[in-house]
Structures are given as structure tokens and as C-alpha cells.
Design a binder for these strands. Structure first.
Lengths: 213, 213
DNA sequence: ACCGGGGTGTTACCTCGGGTAACACCGTCG
DNA sequence: CGACGGTGTTACCCGAGGTAACACCCCGGT
């Protein structure tokens, strides 16, 4: 069997295993699912990161393209943002296990770069950065703001999306609204609640000392 | 040597090692640093997660308390938010390696719950949620919004802070401004850039087909 | 028809990290 | 003095990533 179809087939197997066992699936398990043995996997993908990389790229290419498209949509800005948010949430909703894989950085990489955003998400962040840079007039700070916001928005959607996926507290549409509202400064615009400025419920432990380690 | 001081001492050793080698530090290395051997570590902390948990709690207690305090500060809301952001960034700036540990969820946990936010960050998210719930008038949706925003803001600051810490593109103050601006809806308020609605710079590869690898 | 090479596949192994069993040492209490 | 509970050790198990060395097979060249 020639290289490319075999590769596809291996990725499909890896996919099934991860669907079933989560992102911690072992190379052995994946090889077994594919009906072959480990060295073949390693010949095709180099190492585990290679496999995971190929897999994530397969899955993200669709999501990324969709997000890119959503970012370029000729809509009112708010609608465009909602469209992007919805695209992302729909994507992770469709394949939760794979999504977890995407968001998990390589476990225990000692290479100093302990990025909070896995490569797949980094791409999304860059996409958002580019979109902001090219579409929004932010004055002199635009490069800094676009980059910071790209990461920030991605992280926000990651964390919030993760929570939503776990608990499903509301419809996707509602969640999109909630996040868009946040980005639209609703936190800033809302009124104060007068009474409820209690000193906050302190759990057991020493809460008062900031950094006396 | 009695239990508690020993425990402290072991945590200090673990701290040093992680400071030096990053969050992937092995139990062996930690034991060696403490001048003892693995089983002692396991007697004290059960397993690696126990150690990591104890360590993160030690470090987060300070940060968490500081954030709690910042959230309760009697300031204008914008100033309060900036204060919280600054507190977080200052915290991670002070101890990058430890911070990476905090943000790393347990590597390869097969238990289905692949949360994007590590426990330490979860606490911060809850704190924000509580603060929003008790301080901001959000009408009927307040529970949903507060929870979604708590996670979202935490994720945002996590990702953006991570990037900032890596690249240090600006001062902390400026970064705080950038994030507060985002939360204040500056993205929504800014004007469109007229000319630059290009179809987005497409990187090499097939961008239009979703999964043709 | 034979032979050699490159690709596919295997078994068997190495290494390293988390985790544990079993034993040694030592102060204390009856 | 002897038994016991605690601290500490060595030596090991296991599972996962990764690799070396070998077997097989098809295919092209002479």
C-alpha cells in the first residue's frame, strides 16, 4: 500500500482511538487499532508529536478555514464576531475528544516554551490578530493591541468554550451572545449592584498575606 | 523531623527544582534536590498530582488572595479591573516557571475531563464569577453571564499573559491597558479600516478545502 | 530466470518516569 | 532489654515513547 493512503488510514485509526480513549491514547493503542505495530507509526510520523500534529492539522484545517471565512464575512462587526464565535463553538461541539486533543499542548514538554495555547489555537489567534490589524482602526497601538487581543480572545473562547462544552448550561446561540457581550464591553456598561459588596466568602487557609511564601 | 516542617522543606525543594527545570521536573530530581529519595515524597504527597497540588496551592494562595483583594477594592470599576489584571500579571512575572506549572493541567490525564483551566486558574475564574455576580447588575442572565465571563476572562488573561511573558512586547502597565481596553469594548467601538478588507493573507497550502490534506 | 534493493512489516529491546514492596535504622515506651 | 512506629533506603515493577535489527515481498535490471 502506497504512502499516502496508508497515512490516511493510520490517521483514521488514531482518530478512532482518541475519540474513544481521549487524548492520552498510547501509541501502542493506536497501532493496535490500525492493525499494525508501533514502528510503522514512527516511520510515518517521526514521533508522537508528529502524529498528533498531523491529526490536529487535519482537524483544524476545516475549523481554521471556517474561522477565516467567518472573519472575512462582509457583515456588521458584531455579527461577524458572533459568526466567528459560533463557528468555533460549533466546531468543538461536533468532536469533543478531538477538540481536547487540539487544546492539550504536548504533555510535559521540557523545551522551556510552556505555551498556554496549543499550536492549533495559536493559528486561530494569529488569524484573529491579522483580522483585527486589517479591519479595525486602532491608531498607533494597533500592532500591540491586535496581538494581545488575538491571544486574549482565543484564550477567552477556549476557556469559556471548554466550560460550556462540559456543562452545557445554555444553547450555543446564547453562549455566543454572552461572549460577544463581554467583548462588547457589557461588563463596563452595566450598572453597579449597590448592596452586595461583601468582603467575599473566604475559604479555609491563610487568605490575607499576598506573597509571604 | 516532624511531619509539617519536613513537608515544607520538601515543597521548597520541589520549588527550586521546578524553578530550574520547568514543570516537567521528575520526582527523582525533586527527591534528589531535597536530599532524599522518591518513596518519601510519595509518603508525604501520595502521588505526583498530590505534590503538584500542594505546590500550586502554596503559590496560588498568595496570588488568589491578592486577586480577591483587588476584586474587592473600593475603586471605580475600570480601575478595579486594571488592578486585578496587574495583580495577575505581576504574579506570573515574578515566578515564570511556577506559573507554568500552575497553568499546566495534569499531563495526559485519561479521565475524560480535559479542562482547559488548571485547578488553580479555576479558582481565579470562580472568584471573578463571584465578584461579577455580586457587584454588577446584569439582569436576568446574571448567573450565566457571570460564569461564562469568569471563565472567559480567566482564559483571556491566561493566554494573553502567557504571550506577554514570553515575548515581553511592552510594559506590564501597557499590557494591562490593552486587556482592559478589550474588556471595555474598544474592539466594538473602534472604527472600520476602510481599504484593508483584503481576503486575508493566505499562507501556503489549500485554505479553501476543509479536509483535503 | 535470477538477484539486489527499497519499501512494509515484525519482534525484541532500551530508557525513563511514576509508583511501590520490602527491608534497614533509630528513638521511644513499656 | 525488647517491641514498635516512624524515617529512610535499595531495588524493583509497569507502562509509554522510541529504536535496532531482522524478515518479507515486489519490482526492476541483467
Amino acid at each position: 500500500m502506497s504512502r499516502e493512503p496508508r497515512r490516511e488510514q493510520l490517521l483514521n485509526a488514531a482518530d478512532r482511538v482518541i475519540q474513544r480513549e481521549g487524548p492520552g491514547a498510547s501509541m501502542n493503542a493506536i497501532a493496535a487499532e490500525a492493525g499494525i505495530t508501533k514502528p510503522i507509526l514512527y516511520r510515518h510520523f517521526g514521533d508522537r508529536n508528529g502524529l498528533i500534529g498531523a491529526l490536529t492539522e487535519r482537524h483544524t484545517s476545516g475549523l481554521l478555514a471556517a474561522i477565516r471565512a467567518a472573519l472575512a464575512e462582509p457583515l456588521e462587526r458584531r455579527d461577524r464576531v458572533e459568526h466567528v464565535l459560533d463557528t468555533y463553538l460549533a466546531g468543538i461541539e461536533a468532536r469533543p475528544q478531538v477538540y481536547r486533543l487540539l487544546t492539550h499542548p504536548e504533555p510535559g514538554d521540557p523545551s522551556g516554551a510552556g505555551n498556554a495555547l496549543a499550536p492549533a489555537l495559536r493559528q486561530i489567534a494569529e488569524e484573529i490578530t491579522r483580522a483585527v490589524q486589517s479591519q479595525v482602526d486602532l491608531g498607533a497601538d494597533r500592532d500591540l493591541l491586535a496581538e494581545a487581543w488575538g491571544r486574549g480572545i482565543t484564550g477567552m473562547v477556549l476557556a469559556a468554550g471548554d466550560w460550556w462544552l462540559e456543562t452545557k448550561p445554555c444553547t450555543r446561540t446564547r453562549m455566543v451572545q454572552a461572549l460577544a457581550d463581554l467583548l462588547w464591553g457589557r461588563l463596563a456598561a452595566a450598572a453597579d449592584l449597590p448592596t452586595a459588596v461583601l468582603p467575599s466568602p473566604v475559604p479555609p487557609g491563610g487568605p490575607t498575606e499576598p506573597a509571604t511564601d
